[in-house]
Simulated assay, not measured.
Amino acid sequence: KAAEWYKLAAEQGYSRAQNALGNLYYRGLGVELDCSKAVTWFLKAAEQGNSNAQNNLGICYEEGKGVVKDFLQAKQFYQKAASNNHASATNNLGYLYLMEKLFKEAMNKFHIAASLGCIDAVFNLGTMYEAGLGVTKDSHMMVEYYEEAAGKNYPKALVKMAHLYCKGEYIETDYQKAFNYFKKAAEQGNDEGENGLGQMYELGLGVKTNLKEAIKWYIKSSKQGNPVAAYNLGMICMEGRGLEEANPKKALVYFKEALRNGHPEAKQRLNEVYQDFDLGIDQDENEDHELSFSTINV
């Protein structure tokens, strides 16, 4: 129904309806996903000066959705929207400058976007201070920006703060706070937060040790392609920690998944499983097992 009404209004030239209809096509909500049609409607709205549509076109050109990837075109649309104080477009423009290694220009845009209320930009400022890009490295400013973004429940910042509290490198170690930050990120479906929460449960940091909970969160994270979570599951299966017995075949599945997603130690662990267990399968055989702990009693 929404698509029908938006289309009626869009065909009459209302830019907000045109942009909204473009969003439906871009996301496949109520209509068949069609990024080319999305671009068509975004363009109609952008030509009328709609800043949201200009930003959306910038994203399409940056990501190559519905159009051929073109960073120059993306930058031009971001600039149009940013000139009207569009917070996300200003941040996106800063990100393109960052990719071009124009660090001072990127910092400037991130500062402007942050002042306009863009939480992505606040987080990006933290990364700039952490890496010393366009500015002198400053751990105090880094923590300040990450903490600000985490205070708005920004998942990446929540994970950053959790790691900082675990390491105790720039702030005092506090596993309880780390656990809480990981939990908030995990509850938003962030794969790093899910894996981090699993590790806290597995190691009993900031919470009572609970392997069943650890496995639950590792599985959620590994299903999103997180290599560390898959590796952690492989280790639990290989060693049989908290299980009735070791499950080397499931360990193989998870180590292979970790390897596919780039975990540096997964190949070594695969070799160890083949060497230490009589699996009755060839090392090069590609077996597919369901990524599930349904047959394992914790």
Rank of each mutant, 00 (worst) to 15 (best):
A45L: 06
A162M: 02
Y78A: 00
A10K: 01
A53M: 04
M142N: 04
G117P: 07
L233T: 01
K249F: 13
G193F: 04
F255G: 06
A186F: 01
A45W: 03
C60R: 02
E105G: 08
F71G: 07
V67Q: 03
E290D: 12
Q176A: 10
A251S: 09
A3K: 03
L252I: 11
K212N: 09
R241T: 15
D288Y: 14
L116R: 10
I219N: 02
G193K: 01
E47H: 08
L243S: 03
N124G: 04
E169K: 12
N50I: 03
K1I: 14
N286C: 10
M99R: 14
E172V: 13
E100F: 15
N84Q: 15
E47R: 09
E290L: 10
L205A: 02
A266N: 03
K7P: 01
Y165E: 05
T127W: 07
F77H: 00
Y129N: 02
M142F: 10
Q76E: 08
E4T: 06
D282G: 13
D191C: 11
Q79P: 07
F110Q: 00
L72F: 12
S88V: 12
G198R: 02
S221N: 07
S115D: 13
K183Y: 06
A229K: 02
Q199S: 14
Q176N: 13
Q268S: 13
L125P: 11
D288G: 09
Y170P: 00
E244L: 15
Y175H: 09
E239S: 13
A150H: 00
Q48A: 04
M235P: 02
G234V: 00
A131Y: 14
N52L: 12
N286F: 12
I281N: 03
A82N: 08
Y181E: 02
G126S: 10
E272L: 09
A230K: 03
G64F: 08
A149G: 04
K101R: 11
G66M: 12
E63L: 15
E62N: 13
R241P: 00
V67K: 02
F293T: 01
L33K: 15
S88Y: 04
L270F: 07
R16F: 12
M235Q: 09
A246N: 05
T127V: 12
A89I: 04
R269W: 08
G280M: 06
N226R: 10
N56P: 07
A113S: 06
K101P: 11
A3R: 02
W217P: 02
K101C: 13
N84H: 13
T136A: 14
L252S: 02
D191S: 12
R27T: 11
N261V: 05
V122I: 09
K137G: 00
E239C: 10
N52I: 12
E130S: 14
G117A: 05
E192I: 01
A87Q: 06
S115A: 09
L43Q: 13
G132Q: 06
F103V: 05
N232G: 07
Y165W: 04
F179H: 00
V273S: 01
Q268H: 15
D70S: 07
E192W: 07
K184H: 06
V31A: 11
F42V: 01
H263W: 09
K183F: 12
N261S: 11
C118F: 05
Y129I: 14
V143R: 07
D288C: 07
D34M: 05
G280I: 10
F123G: 00
E239K: 13
C35S: 15
Y201T: 00
Y254C: 05
R260D: 15
A186Q: 00
E272T: 13
